[in-house]
């Protein structure tokens, strides 16, 4: 009987690849509070929820892109975040009345970058990695020229939205959980979401079955860019202003949370809950290493090695280029 219980458990977890990211996050959290003998556990958790939010938002966009098949990845996210942070702060100009126009500008920039990315992929027929890379060069330059020396604080209400809490839970985290839930529904229950999965599994078959492959890919790149844009705006609101390098860490983070969350890099198989688990995992990992008092160098080395180890242990089932 034991045996069958085990195999049932194995089957159950095999259908839920996101489980491991939560297990990992939980273990790291326990290790951290064991080290501090239980002190500050609540604070760590609140901080983790807040910072994980940013990873979750860009991660979901990146996940949809990666799901559409091998070679699909959005490398323009860091440049996008840098540009949008500057645009949002300039348009809002520290005034509460300008928050809505500011967010509209954010959406417009995201839309424009997404369209540009896809136009390059489609018109030049080049691999998405190169297309989004070239686009990111232009976007990054625009961000540098536009945002240099920018010192505008976010409007008070917007800053409050980005840093505030309701019943001890960060508002941002609540928003991100709702967004994640909505996007999970989109992925599983809408024609668009099912099309994304189908294209990732076999683009040719999906096309023959009547799915408008180009249109779905277009929507996906726009989706990713818009999500990254909103992340950039929230990040600027959260950190009290935009900075040009605030997007840098999101290149690795956006891809890492997707993969650690159990999404196949070869495309066609993805899940939203894993993005949350992996985001918490990534943030708690850094917190744990900080708590243990290791220096910046060791922390970077361990972060890199742990990401590789997680992927080496979990990945590599399906052939494909990533």
């Amino acid at each position: 009987m034991r045996q069958s219980a085990f195999s049932r458990l194995a089957d159950w977890s095999a259908e839920r690849p996101w489980l491991w990211s939560f297990v990992g996050a939980g273990l790291i959290f326990l290790a951290t509070i064991a080290f501090t003998s239980g002190k500050g556990g609540g604070d760590v958790l609140t901080a983790a929820l807040t910072f994980a939010t940013f990873y979750v938002i860009v991660g979901i966009g990146q996940m949809f892109v990666i799901t559409t098949g091998p070679g699909n990845v959005d490398l323009s996210i860091p440049a996008n975040i840098a540009l949008v942070g500057a645009v949002a702060m300039k348009v809002m100009d520290g005034s509460n009345a300008m928050i809505v126009p500011g967010l509209a500008a954010v959406a417009a920039v995201g839309l424009a970058i997404g369209c540009f990315n896809f136009a390059l992929i489609r018109i030049l027929s080049i691999p998405p990695i190169i297309a989004t890379l070239s686009a990111s060069f232009l976007v990054q330059s625009t961000a540098i020229a536009y945002g240099r020396g920018l010192r505008i604080k976010p409007p008070p209400v917007f800053a409050e939205l980005a840093t505030g809490r309701v019943l001890g839970v960060p508002i941002l985290a609540i928003i991100a959980i709702l967004v994640a839930a909505a996007m999970a529904l989109v992925l599983r229950r809408t024609v668009y979401g099912r099309s994304v999965l189908a294209i990732g599994q076999n683009a040719r078959a999906a096309g023959l079955a009547g799915i408008r492959v180009a249109r779905v890919r277009f929507a996906t790149y726009v989706l990713s860019a818009v999500f990254a844009s909103f992340c950039g705006a929230l990040l600027a609101g959260f950190s009290g202003g935009a900075s040009l390098n605030m997007g840098e860490e999101f290149l690795l983070a956006s891809i890492a949370v997707v993969v650690i969350g159990g999404t196949s890099v070869a495309g066609g198989f993805s899940n939203v809950p894993g993005i949350w688990g992996a985001s918490l995992f990534l943030y708690l990992l850094v917190t744990m290493l900080n708590t243990f008092g290791v220096g910046a160098g060791v922390r970077l080395i361990l972060t890199g090695l742990i990401i590789i180890a997680v992927i080496a242990l979990s990945g590599g089932r399906r052939p494909g280029r990533g």
Partner: peptide, 26 residues
């Protein structure tokens, strides 16, 4: 051997090398 996506592995390695550099030349 593990048929891994090179993007993710090398991104991880970029952290590794950066960490080594920071240790060597803070």
């Amino acid at each position: 051997l593990r048929n891994l996506p090179s993007i993710v592995v090398t991104l991880g390695m970029s952290f590794f090398w950066l960490g080594c550099s920071v240790l060597l030349l803070p």
